[in-house]
Design a protein around this nucleic acid. Sequence first.
RNA 1: GCCUCCAUAGCUCAGCUGGAUAGAGCAACGGUUUUCUAAACCGUGGGUCACAGGUUCGAAUCCUGUUGGGGGUACCA
Length: 592
Amino acid sequence: MTLEQKILHHLSEAVQAIYQTKTDTDQFNLQETRKEFEGQITVVTFPITEFSKKSPELTGEDLGNYLKTNVDEIVAFNVIKGFLNLVISDEYWFQQLKEIYSAPSYGILPKTGNKVMVEYSSPNTNKPLHLGHIRNNLLGYSVAEILAANGNEVIKSNLVNDRGIHICKSMLAWQKYGNGETPESSGLKGDHLVGKYYVIFDKEYKKQQDVLKAQGQSEEEAKKNAALIQEAQQMLQAWEAGDEPVITLWKTMNSWVYAGFEQTYAKLGVDFQKFYYESDTYLLGKDIIDEGLAKGVFFKKPDGSVWIDLTKEGLDEKLVLRADGTSVYITQDLGTAQLKYNDFGMDESIYVVGNEQDYHFKVLFLILEKLGKSWAKGLYHLSYGMVDLPTGKMKSREGTVVDADDLIDEMVATAKQRTEELGKVDGFSEEEKANLYQMIGMGALKYFLLKVEPKKRLLFDPNESIDFQGNTGPFIQYTHARICSVLSKADYAGTETFAYPGQLAETERDLLVNISQYPQVLNNASQEHSPALIANYVYDLAKLYNKFYHEAPILKSDDENLKTFRLALSAASAAVLKKGMNLLGIQVPERM
RNA sequence: GCCUCCAUAGCUCAGCUGGAUAGAGCAACGGUUUUCUAAACCGUGGGUCACAGGUUCGAAUCCUGUUGGGGGUACCA
């Protein structure tokens, strides 16, 4: 039982004893005490006046007296307006440190047996990854790690969009204008090479449209009638018919892209246990359509197309199968959802996909529910906001994107420059230096993207570099390195014993209170699917540590007892910082 | 048109299921190092929480409406 639960329990008892009213613990409201008042935990007494029929102040006095005599950990209290501030004993906080310190698995919950799949990344194989994909990848990876730390068995999956008209566009443009260019011949990373032809396609396609429009065709006609798009469509049909040369070309260009993606994924530090490919799954879902028709969930229109009527749910009628019997996006997703469940039988399935697809997933989940799929209630769309530039949306076709590889390289280069300016790499080998720059550059980038609540859209200004000071990844990494430096100077092994120093300084207590909140934060982050909660927590912790570091001498402390205590406190802080950052996919250095 | 998300300091963002005087960072200004890493710490200035109503002992938070912005509303994915 946590201290909070204990207090709630006694609060309920107190109301029973003093006001003869039966209450439930969730009728009480506990919060952190604001730092201008004495105490650590605050009871809001306004709601309780309903039972006490007294003023909030007097109610607070009553409850404070009761709690103080009945809860050992509470040594004092004060009532300010309607707020009962409880002072928890320093021994209690000290005891927390003992427990945290001796538990290497602090903050890692035991296995629950719950299995959850996190699908993320899901790239198109016709262009390289950009900043928006980075956000997706980091979010997916981090949420998966957070869920795992909460005791879930996690499967990270990636549904690769490797077919469709957009892939044919790159292929066609390469065929027409590529002159046999390969990643080897040009030295271009495979995904960038393919992306280049995607852009070329669009340019040439636009040119053709302009010619047609000049001949008097409407915008729409020109779009349909341009030779290039028609060729691309023919290519798609040939692909679906299994045409050998097209398939070979497709395989070749895909392999270039995968080689490129692999590099980018490695730099991002993300991984997957299971890959699904749309080229394998695009025909799935048709049996679900039959199932839905049989169950009367879907209906057929005279032209043969299949629909679902969701007007009762406040949505529209939605097409689920074309009149010609071919599938649409949602058909495939229905089939893939079933496939994933057949493969893994997971309890929950999380789709990390941008908020432009909110409607799609609402419909998808609703359909599966209506079909009576028992697992439909475990489906969750982790919707996140787009990454915008000051000029607006990023568009691959128009080349207005922040390329993932470029940005990563830039971040690492900046990390290198900053570190060298500060002269912090004396005695580092070349390899250590490279590692450190990588760690810091990626730390800055990852923290920058993850500290913002997922559903909010994010503004990225390429002209303003991502910070390395203040509320940033490097600040937290620095704090960790700083602690490691102290520990290493003390030859600290991490197993030393320590004793209660008699009393706690304010910064020491603040740190302890914060560290002991970590499991709760981890739980919230998991429930909310929000790495941002971890990021903000870790930042607070780093700030508190630095304050402590400035105010309290550790190695210089003349009291041996105090010194061992502060070292243990430092070690615990470093451990939690590291755990939290690792959940964000960020490594922390021991020196920087 | 309809649906949906968002709006907090000059900028980027926190603010847990409604609770005390709305907090950080950046930017600006000032200070701290013969002492454990100054990517740090301390301080100053900066707010009509988009606007208007409502519910409540209490609203940045909940409800309604308005304005502004994003996204969706395709036999694209």
